[in-house]
Structures are given as structure tokens and as C-alpha cells.
Amino acid sequence: MDLILDIGTWISLLIGSFFLLVTGFGLLRFPDLYTRIHAGGMADTLATAIICFGLALQSGFTLISVKLLFVVIFVFLTSPTATYALAQAAFVAGLKPRLDGFEGPSEKPATNNDDD
């Protein structure tokens, strides 16, 4: 029984780590702010849920699992709000998304509105 739980933890944590690395890679690779937001959303949702699930397998039915559940719920409730605030602030400030697809990471950066 312990072995099955350990294997479950291994698998979930490995999947979570994989998605975290993909998130970091996407943050570096995507061409403009709005596409990077999508990449950041991956770490907020599936990676958090699956890593906390893997940790909960180790602790069993205790208050620790409840705390892990609270972490997931808080992140799931707050992350879209923060993302929306960020996207809306950038949009209102006049940062236009690039809609022409992907032309390589070394393209010119998106319109720079640092002083807005």
C-alpha cells in the first residue's frame, strides 16, 4: 500500500515538475506579454493542483491534506483575479497584443510602453 502511494507521489510530482519547467520555458520563449500570461497560467493551475495532490498522498487523511487543499483553493481563487488585473492594466495602458503568430524569439520586442 505504501509503495502504491509512493509511486503515486513520484508520478504526480514528476508531472508537476515537468509543467513547471514548461512554464518557465514558455515565459522565456513566447513573443509578447499576452502570450506569456498564458504560460504563467499553467504553473498557477495544473502544476499547483498536481503537486499538492502528490504531497497529500504522502500525508494521508490528516489536517495537513486539508491545508494543501486550502492552498489549492486559494491559488485557484486568486490567480485568475491577479491575471485579469494584469491583462486589463496592460490593455488599458495601450499595450497591443501581437496577432501575427510566431516569427522567432529574436524578433523586435512588442511595443514598449514603459512610461505609460
Binding site: 515565459l27 504563467g40 504553473a43 498557477d44 502544476a47 503537486i51 492552498v71 499595450l95 514598449n112 514603459d114
Partner: peptide, 26 residues
Amino acid sequence: ILGPTAYDRILSANAIGTKTVLLIAV
């Protein structure tokens, strides 16, 4: 660090925060 806009930096700070939560737990 790369930027280029301030919003990218805020997004990165937010993403680092989420990952820190996971790091503390692990």
C-alpha cells in the same frame, strides 16, 4: 530581467510567487 515592459516584470514576480508557494510546501 529581460523585460521589456513593466507588465512582464509584474507577471514574472507573480509567477515566482506561485512557485515559491510550491517550493515552501515541497
